[in-house]
């Protein structure tokens, strides 16, 4: 019991987001118990939420490091397109996957160089690369979509977007990748540097952390995972279209922020981001399942984002008050 209490004490933000998630689910369940006891509703949720969560994982690192990346939405399309071309031209899906990861990595590294080495502010720099990569997709495809329907029922499709024990494969991949991101952030030296350069970049530099290289790696990682997410989107829908990824730009950033990673950086969690992404897609699935107009999605999104941010602000205010009390107690000693 005491352990549970101290666990909640230490992970207030994560507990809060989990609570908001459960509340939302309960509301949906009460409004439409039929839909929300149907496994298909959950399969639908789990098959789309990876597209929000995956780019948000890399974005969590970037935002913890007090930077931002808007270009990942375009890199998603670049990844999907790269796969489509390589697979069409060579017939090798494996080669296609390797190529899309490499291209994603390069696109991400390009952001990294702009921001870490050339000191371009990330907001501006990645708006630039967002347009650049979207433009490249439009130029290369001529603005037309590319069908991937021939890939249906191949092993690639089964591995990445099939089902395993009734669970969408892409969700299983997402859970595995989330665990890796969690491990790196919390248990690895690299994750520690991500936190430090967000919490006090000058200090990190002065004690000898290579902040430029760390940033370069963070952006490269985001490029790679965004390209992979774009590939999953294309594979599951059987088509690559020029605007692919667009809708995830604000959604994935929202997932990170709802999950308790403030834009001021220094802190943040992978678990929060995962729940944040899942929650945004629960809202979409839930509203469609209830049967009201899809226009309501944005309204509920907005309400949930505001509630989550208020909860976070209250929790942080509570922490600050605790710090003040501790310091006062120390001063008296």
């Amino acid at each position: 019991m005491k352990n549970i209490k101290s666990f909640i004490e230490r992970h207030k933000l994560q507990v809060a987001i989990f609570g908001i998630f459960l509340t939302l689910w309960l509301i949906f369940y009460i409004v439409n118990p039929y839909a929300f006891s149907n496994p298909y509703t959950y399969t639908a949720l789990l098959s789309v939420t990876p597209f929000t969560i995956l780019p948000a994982l890399g974005l969590t690192y970037i935002i913890i490091a007090t930077e931002v990346d808007l270009s990942f939405s375009s890199i998603m399309a670049v990844g999907a397109m790269t796969f489509a071309y390589i697979w069409q031209d060579t017939g090798s899906a494996l080669l296609g996957v390797i190529a899309l990861l490499v291209v994603g990595l390069i696109a991400g590294a390009f952001n990294g160089i702009l921001i870490a080495k050339l000191k371009v502010p990330s907001l501006i720099g990645t708006i630039g690369t967002m347009f650049f990569w979207r433009g490249i997709v439009l130029v290369v495809t001529g603005g037309y979509g590319m069908s991937l329907h021939k890939i249906e029922n191949t092993y690639v499709q089964k591995i990445f977007v099939g089902t395993f024990l009734g669970i969408p494969s892409q969700f299983i991949w997402t859970v595995l990748i989330t665990i890796v991101f969690w491990l790196i952030l919390n248990r690895h030296k690299f994750g520690a540097y991500v936190y430090y350069i967000g919490d006090n970049r000058l200090a990190a530099k002065m004690v000898g952390i290579n902040t430029e290289r760390t940033l370069l790696y963070i952006f490269s990682l985001e490029g790679m995972i965004a390209a992979f997410a774009g590939f999953l989107v294309a594979l599951s829908l059987g088509t690559v279209w020029p605007a692919l990824g667009d809708i995830y730009m604000l959604k994935s950033i929202a997932a990170v922020v709802i999950g308790g990673t403030p834009l001021t950086g220094g802190v943040g969690t992978i678990f929060g981001t995962f729940m944040g992404g899942l929650m945004l897609d629960l809202i979409e699935t839930g509203i469609l399942a209830i049967g009201v107009s899809g226009f309501w999605i944005k309204v509920v999104d907005g309400v949930v984002i505001v509630i989550a941010l208020i909860a976070q602000a209250l929790i942080r205010e509570g922490e600050l008050a605790k710090i003040r009390r501790k310091k006062e107690a120390l001063a008296k000693e």
Binding site: Y195, D199, M206, V207
Partner: peptide, 20 residues
């Protein structure tokens, strides 16, 4: 350093071993 080179949101042990 003369300047404070601490990460305010991170634990004492993480700060002590920062970069090492």
């Amino acid at each position: 350093h003369q300047e404070r080179t601490l990460c305010p949101h991170h634990s004492v042990w993480r700060n002590i071993f920062m970069a090492r």
